[in-house]
């Protein structure tokens, strides 16, 4: 199972031709208690770097950017009723959306788990 990270703290976990997108554990910790998540519509086409979702903590709203280009094929609608899942299990039940990748090559520009952990150390 391959997971890649952006410098903006999104992850994409590759499952076949699709990627599960969410925010990292570091990101949820920085945000604090998540109280609202706005997800894109299924079928929406995103380019890498587009605003894909919005995550709101008590204090502020933050954009979640698409880590890869592709079509949104599924969203985690459980987050509407239970946004706190993003804090509890960001890599698992707290996922945001599933994107069918249009360019697997984009993954090469993202960080591996190890590189991302190094990156987090360098900024914290």
């Amino acid at each position: 199972m391959t997971t890649r990270y952006t410098k903006d703290h999104e992850y994409v976990r590759i499952e076949g031709d699709a990627g599960i997108v969410g925010i990292s554990d570091y990101a949820q910790g920085q945000l604090g208690d998540v109280v609202f998540v706005e997800l894109p519509s299924v079928g929406k086409t995103l380019s890498k770097g587009d605003e894909a979702a919005v995550v709101e903590s008590v204090k502020a709203a933050s954009e979640v950017y698409a880590p890869v280009s592709g079509e949104v094929v599924e969203v985690n609608s459980d987050l509407e009723a239970s946004p706190g899942t993003v804090n509890e299990d960001p890599a698992g039940r707290g996922w945001f959306m599933k994107i069918r990748l249009t360019d697997q090559g984009e993954l090469d520009g993202l960080m591996t788990e190890e590189q991302y952990q190094e990156f987090v150390k360098s900024i914290s």
Binding site: G32, D33, V35, S57, V58, K59
Partner: peptide, 12 residues
Amino acid sequence: PVQYPTGILTEH
């Protein structure tokens, strides 16, 4: 201090 480790919801 904007928050302590337990977080804003718990503090509120």
